[in-house]
């Protein structure tokens, strides 16, 4: 009976042990993601502004080649243009169908899609004011029917900050869960070692001495958690780089390595501080009253 009780406690202890290690890992992964976003915030934002926000200038159906070339030549001289491309009717149609739209040719028998010039801006010009001026400038041209750019996105460049805040929210949630888990693990470990601890208390061991083996274990566990988080982090990052090759240039590797070191320190700190806190808390109680 007692044996059965003991082994189930041990099993419970081991499960919650593993879970605390994984929990700390999760917290660190989230912190790592936040940290990485933070480190590369400026370059990510620049990349986003220069690649994801483009202006479309649609040309009148009747526009002559010469007028079109004049417009492009004018565009080339503008300091805010990062890159541009001319989209003829065929390309427009291809983009149209690549977006998953039905071919309209059989119905309409003619390509109704207008020619357009698309350009990206240098990041310092991506703001509501500059964009509306630029848009107004091209709209005045008589060969232009319409100028479009993603107005909503321009006003909403706090995207990365929002992602960061969202991750921080989850991280705090996991952190609380982890502290509770570690507390429970510590409680179990202390209960199964209660005779040892009682002996130490009775003969006059200090709390620091009693807590030492728990603290050491916590440092080891924190290190394991951090190593897991760092490995997962690097794997994720290299996967992301293979999907988005531009990330290679954006990501700052020196700071990323520093971030990994920081995660190791944070992992050990979370594990150690919360374990030590729990040990002291339970030492203040009568050990036999733990369960």
């Amino acid at each position: 009976m007692e044996q059965a009780g003991k082994s189930s406690t041990t099993k419970r202890g081991r499960t919650s042990y593993t879970m605390s290690i994984i929990g700390v890992s999760l917290v660190l992964m989230l912190l790592g993601a936040i940290g990485w976003l933070g480190i590369n915030y400026t370059s990510l934002l620049q990349y986003y502004k220069e690649n994801k926000i483009s202006v479309q200038v649609y040309l009148r159906e009747t526009t002559s080649e010469a007028d079109k070339d004049a417009l492009i030549n004018d565009l080339k001289t503008k300091p805010y243009v990062k890159k541009y491309s001319y989209i003829d009717k065929e390309t427009a149609k291809k983009i149209w169908s690549d977006l998953g739209n039905k071919d309209f040719m059989p119905v309409l028998d003619t390509n109704i899609l207008p020619r357009s010039v698309e350009f990206n801006l240098k990041s310092e010009y991506v703001d509501t004011d500059s964009l509306s001026k630029i848009s107004a400038y091209f709209s005045e041209n008589s060969i232009v029917t319409d100028v479009q750019y993603p107005k909503g996105l321009v006003g909403d460049l706090k995207l990365f900050r929002k992602i960061g805040l969202f991750l921080a929210g989850i991280a705090i949630f996991f952190l609380i869960a982890v502290i509770i888990l570690i507390d429970n693990t510590t409680k179990l470990a202390m209960f199964s070692n209660r005779f040892l601890i009682k002996t130490m208390q009775m003969v006059g061991a200090t709390r620091w001495f009693i807590a030492k083996p728990f603290d050491l274990r916590a440092i080891i566990n924190g290190t394991i958690s951090a190593v897991i988080a760092i490995i997962v982090g690097f794997l994720t990052l290299s996967w992301l780089k293979s999907v988005i090759p531009d990330l290679e240039a954006i990501s700052n590797s020196t700071l990323t390595i520093l971030l990994a070191v920081l995660l190791l320190i944070i992992g050990v700190a979370i594990s150690l501080v919360s374990t030590h806190r729990s040990v002291i808390k339970y030492l203040k109680m009568k050990l036999d009253d733990l369960y």
Binding site: G204, A205, T206, R207
Partner: peptide, 16 residues
């Protein structure tokens, strides 16, 4: 206090 109790206990022997 909890800080000094250990040192009190070291000056006495307990047989319980």
């Amino acid at each position: 206090t909890w800080k000094t109790v250990p040192f009190l206990r070291r000056t006495l022997g307990v047989v319980f």
